[in-house]
Amino acid sequence: MAENFEQHSDISAADLARLNQEAQAEATPSTAKIIWNEFKADKPAMAALIIVVGFIVFVMIGALFINTPKMMETNIMDYFDKPFTAGFWLGADSGGRSVAKQLIVGSRNSIGIAIGLTVISSTFGIAWGLISGYFSGYIDWGMQRVYDFMMMLPMTMMIIVLVTIIPHYNSVSLTFIFSIFYWEGTSRLIRSRTLAETQKDYVAASKTSGTNHWKIIFKEIMPNISSLIIVDCTLSFAENIGVETGLSYLGFGLPNQTPSLGTMIANANDPSNITLYWWTWLPAALEIVVLCLSISYIGQVLRRAADASQRQGAAD
């Protein structure tokens, strides 16, 4: 059979290296290169990228050098020290604990939970949506009824109940509890696009080429909705920082001895803290605003990179 092709084409094994080289020279730039060009064209987004990546790396590494139990010890002598006094850059809170150090460890905890939650819930939601949308019929029907049931549960209340029931929980178990409830939006979004994508001819062509269902779902359809996936992930990451923060603010998030952005903002529960001791809550609040804004800038660039008609970056 191979001879059949040899016969009717004047290309033989000897030409392989040369032709491959020619083709490589004409190759289209990769997706990573296109995204990078897009960041170069959009200065605010570039700044946002540097802020987000720099900040995450800083808190992840910085937190390693801080002894958390020692930091969280109460020291009455430093009661509400002002910023830039007695070695406290950002002052101290009512327990005489350094706000700056709490901010670093707290950011690490909050961002860690947000990343973990985004990874787990998006992976599950994407897989759920893709499988449901691709197979349709009874499988889709069953999976969507499970989705409807999960949507019906009052999320915040369920999380609070679970957190109260579980005796010893930490940031890892909290991440898993959140993940039970946060995959739904993603899955429905992905399913709707998958339904449309599955009807296209390239899926039929893959079927006639003998590719199995799982390969079609994850290697053919998924790359085609990657723009949606990337944008959804960045936005839900920003949202997920808020999830932990909100719950900790209410007092049902991380335990008291574990600082997080939410517990720090909870300082603003006290009217005198809001007016007199502003340094206890303002840095954390500002950090959340800056992070979420930056992430949405990055999300916009990724969306533009995925859609050729919106691109601003130089075309290679």
Binding site: H8, S9, L19, A23
Partner: peptide, 27 residues
């Protein structure tokens, strides 16, 4: 290598150049 050679031969049979190899359909 055999696979790449076969693809190049097929492109040749349908009258396309080897530099199509790493391009995308919309081009």
């Amino acid at each position: 290598d055999d696979e790449k050679l076969r693809v190049l031969q097929l492109l040749n049979i349908v009258g396309l150049d080897a530099d199509a190899l790493y391009k995308y359909p919309h081009q």
